[in-house]
Nucleic acid binder design. Structure first.
Lengths: 193, 193
DNA sequence: TTTTTTGTTGATTGACGAGTCAATAAACAA
DNA sequence: TTGTTTATTGACTCGTCAATCAACAAAAAA
């Protein structure tokens, strides 16, 4: 049965299974066996390819962050003004790829992981800094030296909406969430009332 | 050594130790033994008084929420206008009692717990609903029928700032956090620019 | 004083899970 | 063909942990 060149396929399957399993169970308390089973292989194979549980988690996190980053980059490419670029960032964050319940739940758990795993913390920091830098850069032409605090508020609001989605009371769909942040943005830009 | 009337003391010690332990370790992966040790007793005694780990967690969560609620209630009592009442809510949330790193970390983990434990989810829902209702009620006289969406945004921002504190990059102190939310509030009330 | 209730723990049980290993098998290289 | 690399797993080890239990101690009730 053994084919050759399985490694990348297995790795990808494990990464996806990890995100799904964490998302579905809503907790980092998933066993390697569960993940491996979902990915259609034995737990021994998971260990073979990744070496250990932590590395599986980190790979899953990297993937999640990479998908998000790619989405943002793609959206930014289509935008040509500061305002539309900020909109792009927001829309990408709440797009259907990232804003499904399981994915958000996985995110939340990555935040928890970041509290104990140095590497996970570093990864999350990179994401946060990038988001902040993006917002800041595009806000500067719009609000000048207020950009820093505005970026802080918009970024905080985005994270907060994610958190609330994870708890999952209100089934805020993505476009509603986007609208909420953009409304706040309008206010910040002094166009609202 | 056994004194009488220990039950409430032991329970309180265990609850506090649970919060501290979760906060310190940044994870729900704390053992009953760790908690019991921190509270100065054997793990068997912890089981004796609470019956099981989950119930210890729930008691700790109830306590955290109760402390928060008490703080808000206290602050509200001193305020007499909608605007100051909203300020009171915000200030209470970021007061020194609730906004210490370990406590915030414990909160974050309670969010995770809420994803798997029905009872924990219910508790957190009560808190969220209460916060929302408080904001809504006091925003109504200030912004009329926009109150709903404004409450959503302010509440989201509060949660987001908590989340960022948990990650702990920026050591946002409480007053800075308060200022940030109040600035957003001013914008919403159309007084900013 | 005896009995019961309350407080307390060390030792044990039973389950579960991460990680290892030896064995098997297909593909590929020599 | 034969040896080597890659893929794969079932079985096993070792540790950990929640939960239980038997036993002991002190206070209160009888």
């Amino acid at each position: 049965m053994p084919k050759v060149g399985m490694e990348p396929i297995r790795r990808a399957a494990l990464v996806q299974a990890t995100i799904d399993e964490i998302g579905a169970s809503g907790s980092l308390d998933v066993t390697v066996s569960q993940i491996a089973k979902r990915a259609g292989m034995s737990s021994a194979l998971a260990h073979h390819y990744f070496g250990g549980k932590e590395q599986i988690f980190l790979a899953a996190m990297r993937h999640t962050l990479a998908v998000y980053a790619a989405e943002v980059r793609g959206a930014l490419g289509m935008a040509d003004s500061p305002r539309t670029r900020i909109e792009a960032i927001v829309r990408a964050g709440f797009g259907t790829t990232n804003f499904r319940r399981e994915v958000v739940s996985a995110w939340l758990n990555f935040y928890v992981l970041a509290q104990t795993s140095g590497e996970a913390g570093r990864l999350l920091n990179v994401y946060q800094r990038r988001l902040h830098a993006n917002l800041l850069y595009n806000l500067r032409p719009l609000v000048g030296d207020k950009a820093e605090e505005v970026a802080q508020r918009i970024g905080g609001l985005i994270d907060g909406i994610y958190l609330r989605e994870a708890l999952g009371t209100k089934t805020t769909n993505g476009s509603k969430a986007t609208a909420m942040v953009l409304a706040a943005l309008d206010l910040e830009l002094g166009q609202g009332k």
